[in-house]
Simulated assay, not measured.
Amino acid sequence: MKDSNIGLKGNVHSIETFGAFDGPGIRYVVFFQGCALKCKFCHNRDTWATTENKLMTADEIIADYKKYKAFYKGGGITASGGEATFQLEFVTELFKKAKEQGIHTCLDTSAGTYRENRQEAFDELLKYTDLVLLDIKHIDNEEHKWLVGAPNTNILAFAKHLSDLKIPTRLRYVLLPTINSQDHYVLRLREFIDTLENMVGIDVLPYHKAGIKKWEAMGIPYELNHISEPSKDLVLHVENLLKTNYNYMKI
């Protein structure tokens, strides 16, 4: 691995210095440029491109984090995106340097870049990762292909690998009415996560339309205009299906 001091840089889309929804506590969230998935409901459509935005070294990010570290008691650094693992080597360097200074690290990922032939590189990152926020968009492979433009097989394989390594992981499920909200899909997802031994939480995230303006600003048609935001009752129903008698709820 290159040393960040001799040229390894991350392509950063933006940084949020007071993130409250991207891991425990108050977080310093780095949104990386580039994504392997093409989610029809993406609220960060402007992060897909791999063109250079703001290039930063790991040392520069750590130095910027330290400006606000008084706010991060119980928090730390979260790598998000786009897709953080699109820049796997750089995020590994960043997390390694963070752990050297006792900073909690959180990886927010959809795992679209995971492949078995890259497992060694992913394992190097996971050595320095305290928590994974894992998005599973859809449990059905064909529906997943339609929704995000890629299969879910590698994503589910990554979930199992995290379980084998006992890496603490929170499931994040964006709830899209009529797309992945049906009971038969939710119960299949529950059946899958019941096979995992590392889940420390489940977050059902209601689909929202706030990101549509980014698509419009970029002049790109948004396919899911007809999808409504889920009702509170639907969110509670899906939460019950996923959480009732789940292992981590018993701890």
Rank of each mutant, 00 (worst) to 15 (best):
V132K: 04
R188E: 09
H144E: 03
E142W: 01
A159I: 11
I167A: 02
D164F: 02
A159F: 09
L162D: 02
H138Y: 10
H161Y: 07
W146Y: 11
E124A: 14
I139L: 04
H161E: 08
Q182E: 13
K137E: 08
W146L: 13
D183T: 15
L171T: 07
I193T: 14
N152V: 10
I155Q: 00
D194A: 09
L165S: 05
I167C: 06
A121W: 03
K145N: 09
R172P: 01
R188D: 09
K160W: 01
T169L: 03
F192V: 08
K127R: 13
D140C: 01
Q182R: 15
N154T: 12
K127V: 02
H161N: 08
I167R: 04
V174P: 09
I139A: 05
R190V: 12
L156V: 12
L134T: 11
L189K: 03
L165R: 15
S163P: 02
R188W: 01
K127W: 00
Y128I: 06
L165Y: 04
L133W: 09
L196K: 06
N152S: 14
A159H: 08
L162M: 06
S163H: 04
I167H: 01
I193G: 15
T153D: 14
T153P: 00
F158S: 07
T129C: 14
I139K: 01
I155G: 06
R188S: 10
W146R: 15
I136Q: 06
A150H: 13
N141E: 13
S163L: 12
T195E: 10
N180R: 05
I139W: 01
D194T: 08
E191T: 11
T169S: 05
D183L: 13
E191V: 00
Y173H: 10
